[in-house]
Amino acid sequence: MNAIELGPFVFATERFAFLLAAVTFFGSFHLLTLWHIAGVREDVRAWAFPAAMIWLLGARTGYVMQQWDVFSQHPLDIPKVWQGGVSVWTGFAGLAAFAILAYARRRAAVAPLLAAAFAGGLVNLGLLSLKETDETAALPTTAFPTMAGDFTQLNERDGAPLILNLWASWCPPCRREMPMMMDVANTIQGADLVFANQGETPAQVTDFLDTLGLGDRHLLLDPTSSLMARFDAVGLPTTLFFDASGTLQNVHFGEISRTELLSQIATIDTAASNLGDGDIPDSDQTGDPQ
């Protein structure tokens, strides 16, 4: 399960787990302070929001430090928390420091803070444990048209990993991530990054590319959105990561950050480099399942 649908809304599992953990934290903290008398209760509850912000700041700072080789080249990406990317343990380290301050200033806030954080952490881990990748979904043998009028088959890998981005021009997150992903597609080595437009005409795609000043070198057209159906993509954008054998290794739903994209590419590229030539199946063995 890589995404969760709630009516008309679709959330990536990681983002939904984060949001539900936050709701659990504030809800638990509220319940755990009900036994305080009125004046003390309001004072204790005032510590909840700063604690959450300290956790988020610590978690984001830890993640940025871990991925500094990427963020140092693109510092404007650091505040883009909505793209994902936190280090849970550095977040809890920041929260522990905040709890020490709370112990010195308002001791009554410490126990509900830590208990609520524990509850939120359990909810987050529980939802993330539900995420799984369907590795049985193989690349199709269908030939897809390119913007140049040619046709290409995604299952013909030639020993190179594939990153397949499903997108459409009407999708705001697709529009935001496309320039960055195109930049990566033009510079990476050892892997192919392909953008499969879902359900639009060549004229619509051309208008979009012209608006952003992007080329069409890495694009193909999927006018019937068959790839969304094949890989159970509940929304756009969806980015799928295949190893050199054409096996699906990971799925990222929603807008992806440069850091996460490069990290996933490095993971499958390293796996590919560790395989011998005899370990990579022929492309005609990765076709449609019967």
Rank of each mutant, 00 (worst) to 15 (best):
Q73H: 09
F231W: 09
L193W: 10
Y63P: 07
Y63G: 12
L139M: 13
I78D: 12
L193N: 14
E14N: 15
L164P: 05
S283D: 04
E42D: 04
F151I: 04
L219G: 07
L219I: 14
V10G: 03
A97Q: 04
C171A: 05
I163D: 05
E135P: 00
S226E: 02
L56S: 08
Q198W: 04
D210S: 02
T142P: 13
G94V: 06
A111T: 02
I4Y: 15
G126N: 13
A138I: 01
C171H: 11
A138H: 01
V184W: 11
Q290C: 11
A244S: 09
V23Y: 00
A116C: 02
T206W: 04
D43I: 07
V251C: 09
N186P: 07
G91V: 11
F242M: 03
F29G: 08
A3C: 09
A48G: 14
Q290V: 15
Y63T: 13
E42R: 15
L236T: 05
P50D: 00
Q285F: 15
T267L: 06
T146S: 14
A12H: 15
L76Y: 12
A38K: 14
P79R: 03
T13E: 00
R258T: 06
G126D: 05
H218V: 05
F144S: 12
F98V: 14
L166Q: 06
R15C: 04
T259F: 14
G246H: 14
R105H: 13
L262E: 15
H36K: 12
I54T: 12
T61N: 03
S283Q: 07
L209G: 10
T224W: 03
L32F: 14
F151D: 12
Q83F: 04
S245I: 01
G235D: 10
F98C: 13
D210L: 00
W89T: 02
F71Q: 08
T33L: 13
I280C: 07
P79L: 12
L32S: 07
M65G: 07
N2K: 02
C174L: 04
D183C: 03
D150Q: 10
L95S: 11
R175K: 05
H74C: 03
F98Q: 03
Q249V: 01
D277C: 08
G58M: 08
E260V: 11
R176D: 05
T61F: 14
T146Y: 14
G159V: 00
A22D: 00
D282K: 00
L139Y: 01
Y103S: 09
F151S: 06
G7Q: 07
R157H: 12
S169P: 01
S72V: 13
P8G: 07
V23C: 04
Q285T: 07
S226C: 04
A229C: 03
P281K: 00
T238E: 14
V81W: 02
E132R: 11
S87K: 06
I37D: 06
S28W: 05
I268H: 02
T146F: 08
D207A: 15
L261C: 04
G159F: 01
L221N: 14
